[in-house]
Amino acid sequence: MTTLTVVQAGLGSPSSTQLLATRLAEATQRLVPDLEVRTAHLRDLARDIADNLVTGFPSARLREVVESVVGADALIAVTPTFNASYSGLFKSFVDVLEPESLVGKPVLIGATGGTERHSLVLDHALRPLFAYLRAIVVPTGVYAASSDWGADGLPGRVDRAAGELADLLAGRAPVKPAHDGFVPFDQLLAGR
């Protein structure tokens, strides 16, 4: 059995961060047989996380979540974008993990935001964070702006990212594109 832990730092209810995290997890589940998925909703642990910062040790229920993150075969981490970065709650959770506890861990990163203009949060904030932690972040991160929920494109990115995570879990090299972008002319002419 393979285990996947989903950490999401959405604050609202319903929450687009929660929604994106769920879709990423379901897409991964479709590709990885016998995948056990556990979900950590950081909002429910907000006080525990703050207490851990102060006291240096986790409460019993936070310890359970930390253990599920550290012990999982893969991690999906999704945060809302606040002031051009991950949310403070998200970072605080990462800050209470023991040093080196994510070394080598396959991670899929995701973020949500009000507008597309924040999409680089993935590559300017989340990716360097996990690089520092020496986790292995899959090439595709998934950013969902409000407008993405009413447009096409998001499901394809979700599937591509999930596929990369599944490949990493299976120890497969990422699948190369089947072609180099060549499209027969009759299809081009048909507008596709």
């Binding site: 703050a50 207490d51 910062l53 102060v54 006291t55 040790f57 409460s59 019993a60």
Partner: peptide
């Protein structure tokens, strides 16, 4: 100084 402004007295005595 060490644990103030964090967990409650009740939580800390339990833990």
């Amino acid at each position: 100084p060490v644990y103030g402004h964090g967990p409650s007295l009740e939580e800390f005595t339990e833990q």
